[in-house]
Design a protein around this nucleic acid. Structure first.
Lengths: 241, 241
DNA sequence: GGCTCGAAATTGTGATCACATTCGACCTAG
DNA sequence: CTAGGTCGAATGTGATCACAATTTCGAGCC
């Protein structure tokens, strides 16, 4: 069972966790709900929580050994970002995917992500590109090993390492929200199909970055989106509407 | 001073407000924080809160005669939607506008909103169009009267009456988040320039809807965005970077 | 034996308290 | 008169309690 090591800044009212010395090795300066948020966000993004499965405030609180309060705030935030869905029963779950939602996410990604990559292009240094290449190699490794979560983490890093270089924070935030919404389904898709059949458009993207060609980079990103989302579409939406 | 009339569903622990009979005329079924959220959202969207001005949890709670708790959740949600900004001091304010943010919002609007309108086109009935025309007339009225807030409300209604008809909820949610981010600046812009000089692209949009021409509708919406955002750009960003 | 109804447990929501940090005003020293 | 410092008020964060609504599960009835 994971636990949030030690208390962070802010009010430490009431009894302490108990068995740990104060001032543990946690990254200080973060509020507890922020830490809970990041942890949940990762779990959702990399498929740790299956779509349709419900989460409860007290359950998560126990799991992370914190009080329900910071969990409430983290969950509320994730609901606002559409990573979680608040049902009419006021219960919280990972949102299921419909064909319509899927299609809209695909459109939004194609509209925003190639642009983001193009904006990043001018600001990419040699060492940035080298780092991105390294990430791409770890994608290949994970892919060949059949390590789905590793693949997803690396794939996320690959894309956002580029996008963040654009320094277009407003757009990056929009795209991150979109990724949160289809993350769980990526996991389902690769869990069903496997990672071995993925064709790699990242090579084209990297060579486009090296050439400094915005048009080629847009094309590569767009192709990558189309293929990745195609997988999800086939695997997840084949039977349901 | 506004107040949230009566208590809503959910725990009513401790002493009651005091002076009101139970079961007041409020819309029941809504949680308190949801109601607070909508109220704050409106204030932000229509410029009731000036950019850069700070809001406090207890301040808002007193203003609405609720406990700080639902305000916390509402504010947290608005922060996640980027309508409010959590500073390093952990204080909350309406986000200021920078040239970069402005430019990104403009891009995202142009990428998403014409598409949304085009998707709505097929589902628009005669009566829908008539209703939208009525909203457009109220825009004219407010414009001539110099009623900035009325103009903004009606303008918002005009756009989202169309967009919502697309039933593309995922995309609509993205666009709503974007509108929340530039709402306050629209108010500033019109407060400075006035509403009288606004050219009306809505007529073109309406005639495009009547003709059923998706291409024309896209063009009209795009032109409307360009003009509206141009106003904000000139008025708000003329001096600051 | 399958179904229904009711009691107990679980869950989300709101209120209140506790505390560390930060902001602001007032005061004092130069 | 200005700059620096100190103390009090205000604020965000987390914990705990209270309560209504929903869910869950087991006992009783047909």
């Amino acid at each position: 069972m994971k636990r949030l090591t030690g208390a962070s800044a802010g009010g430490k009212a009431g009894v302490n966790g108990g068995d740990e010395p104060p001032e543990t090795q946690t990254i200080v300066g973060l509020t507890t709900h922020e830490e809970v948020y990041r942890r949940l966000r990762e779990q959702i993004l990399y498929g740790g929580i299956k779509p349709g499965s419900a989460v409860t405030l007290r359950g998560l609180a126990d799991e992370l050994s914190v009080s329900p309060m910071p969990v409430r705030e983290a969950v509320r935030r994730l609901i606002a970002e559409r990573a979680l869905l608040l049902q009419d029963n006021r219960r919280v779950m990972v949102a299921p995917m419909t064909r319509e939602t899927f299609e809209q996410i695909l459109f939004a990604r194609r509209a925003l992500e190639p642009e983001l990559a193009a904006r990043a292009l001018a600001k990419l240094t040699k060492s940035d590109i080298a780092a991105i290449e390294a990430v791409d190699r770890s994608i290949d490794t994970a892919m060949r090993a059949g390590d789905t979560e590793g693949y997803m983490r690396a794939n996320y890093q690959f894309h956002f390492a580029i996008y963040r270089k654009s320094e277009a924070w407003t757009l990056v935030a929009l795209v991150e929200s979109i990724w949160l919404q289809f993350g769980p389904f990526m996991r389902m898709a690769y869990g069903r199909i496997g990672t071995s059949t993925i064709e790699d458009h990242h090579e084209f993207a990297i060579s486009a970055m090296k050439k400094g060609s915005a048009a080629d980079l847009r094309k590569a990103i767009d192709a990558d989106i189309g293929q990745g989302m195609g997988f999800i579409g086939e695997a997840v939406l084949s039977r349901a509407g």
